[in-house]
Computed example of a mutant assay.
Amino acid sequence: MDFSAADVVGELKVLRKGRGIFTTPLADRVGPALRATCGILEDDDSVEIRRKLADRLRPLVESLPDDLKIALRAAFALDERARKPFYQERVHWAAITLDRDDRTVRRRIDEGIEQVAAMAVAAGPPDLRPRYPSRSWHTEELRVTLALDQPVAEAFEFRRVVADADEIAELDLALTLTAAGESGVSVRESDLVVDVFHGGVLAGRAMESSDRVGLALRLPEPLRRGERHDIGLRFRANMREPHYICVPRHPCDLFDLHVRFGDRVPDRIVRLEKAFQNDTRSPRGAVLETDDAGEVHVRFRHLAPGFAYGIRWLPAGAG
């Protein structure tokens, strides 16, 4: 069934009420036009519906002028600072942020919704086919928070995997600890401390190469094709090189990375995307700025297996 931009506008105006995309139950608030536009399936639960709505709406909202962007982030509770229980409270938050009155913000929201709906319909429904097919399993989401302002660098990794075959009982994971080229010190398996917080049991670990530690995570029970499973891990290691990268062995749909430098903000931070792993020491990419908390946030989609994604930095005073 085809839907018009007007159909999407009507449903977006319903969605913005209450808590926006954080309304529960969310399925009752999402109509057929939004379901088709965002690729929402009949058996998707509230968490999955919210993820698909956010993944579809956020890039469209981010393409708008700044005033419309702020207004719509608030309207749908896409901005963490505006996740208030009532729509009117979020409108008022946007009004204060934009130094406008509430009535003006409501007009901005209506204008932004019309533009977002038109772009969404013009782009068509999302292609749900995987860009990099897998015969075993792939990562739907990989969210990492890395704290570098600790005595030892510490990363929390939350990963959602999807089985692409039956009887997936074990995940072959790995982490690269690149040895500094001039140090002459080799990476050892013991350099990496791994704690499993949920989702399985660490069944084995071994050096796969001079700088890559392989991990085998045994699942609580085998996955059937199409089943999803969440895991939570913590890694601690001394950083040998000033970068943090993901080099996926299996396809990865989304890699979301927060890095906290704290007070030790580097002189330069560069975004790495689909880089050859050997080229990460002299990267080309967008220069990133930390926020007031000394943090950077990057997001990557459709990661190609074997390539590097993440950031590299020049430590303060190193240049």
Results as ranks from 00 to 15, higher is better:
97 T>I: 11
307 F>Q: 02
146 L>S: 06
288 L>T: 07
27 A>N: 03
144 V>A: 08
200 G>S: 03
263 D>W: 08
189 E>W: 08
283 P>T: 04
90 R>C: 13
84 K>R: 01
177 L>S: 01
52 K>P: 03
78 L>V: 10
174 A>G: 04
202 L>E: 13
112 G>R: 09
116 V>F: 12
161 V>R: 02
258 H>Y: 12
109 I>S: 06
122 A>E: 15
185 V>N: 07
229 H>T: 01
32 P>Q: 09
278 N>H: 14
72 L>H: 03
3 F>H: 11
77 A>K: 00
311 I>K: 05
241 E>D: 15
157 E>R: 00
49 I>T: 02
56 R>M: 06
219 L>A: 02
210 S>Q: 14
261 F>Y: 05
127 D>P: 00
265 V>A: 12
9 V>T: 05
189 E>A: 07
80 E>R: 09
187 V>L: 11
316 A>E: 13
38 C>Y: 06
8 V>K: 01
48 E>Y: 01
217 L>N: 01
47 V>T: 08
64 L>H: 01
183 S>G: 15
308 A>E: 10
270 V>N: 02
306 G>L: 13
121 V>G: 00
16 R>N: 07
205 R>F: 10
241 E>V: 15
264 R>A: 14
289 E>S: 11
295 E>R: 08
275 A>N: 00
247 V>Y: 15
180 A>Y: 11
83 R>F: 09
108 R>Q: 13
186 S>R: 05
215 L>T: 06
59 P>Q: 10
263 D>H: 05
289 E>R: 00
115 Q>D: 04
